[in-house]
């Protein structure tokens, strides 16, 4: 992202950012992204972000955990898979076959939860391209603190002229408009 020319609207209130996004989208401006220190309710809908498929991933991970949990117990505790080598574990005369399914419930349940949670965690980090030690692409050090940024590239403005864009976001409450140019190390301030 930092290698593109960018126009950045800076806000100090999430509601103002949300209104700007709604106004700009009505005028046909596609917005590259917004950066906020806290989740702003409905901003994803206003930006037109498609609902993530992470829920499907969570289900598949959970289902894998469920199957592996059951398989582990069938493999180690019953004779159905013909996996006993020498010592079947008969403890308290308890059954060694499908009759022990009720006592498989807790471990199967825990495996399902474990796989769902870690599966979704890992999928999230992959989708968000996050990893330990990654250098963040930060446009303003206050974007994780008390400032919200609205970011567009010049060609995303479409039919809206640059001065019109400025007046739309200023009237919606932007406190500052900047440009980011990868060729210059410092951002230009307006």
């Amino acid at each position: 992202m930092l290698d593109k020319k960018l126009i950045i609207g800076v806000y100090d209130d999430g509601d103002n950012l949300l209104h700007s996004v709604e106004k700009l989208r009505k005028r046909g401006v596609e917005i590259l992204d917004c950066f906020t220190p806290y989740p702003i309710h409905n901003l994803d809908k206003a930006l037109g972000i498609k609902r993530s498929n992470l829920t499907v991933g969570a289900f598949l991970c959970g289902f894998t955990g469920f199957c592996l949990g059951l398989l582990l117990q069938f493999y180690t505790m019953t004779s159905h898979l013909h996996t006993f080598k020498s010592w079947p574990m008969i403890i308290g005369g308890k059954p060694q076959n499908y009759m022990m399914i009720p006592s498989m419930v807790p471990v199967t349940f825990e495996c399902t939860i474990l796989f769902t949670a870690f599966g979704i965690g890992i999928l999230f980090f992959i989708r968000a391209k996050m990893i330990h030690g990654k250098i963040p692409d930060i446009l303003d050090p206050r974007q994780t603190d008390d400032r919200m940024l609205l970011v567009v590239t010049p060609d995303q403005l479409g039919e809206v002229s640059r001065s019109e864009f400025d007046s739309i976001i200023t009237s919606a409450g932007a406190i500052e408009i900047r440009e980011h140019n990868p060729e210059h190390s410092n951002d230009n301030q307006h």
Partner: peptide
């Protein structure tokens, strides 16, 4: 920086983040 995993607060990540939080 190491433990923040490159978090930048983008709206797309917040969207995914909230889904993950809800599933967890």
């Amino acid at each position: 920086g190491f433990f923040s995993m490159g978090w930048n607060g983008s709206a797309r990540n917040w969207h995914r983040y909230e889904i993950v939080a809800l599933i967890l």
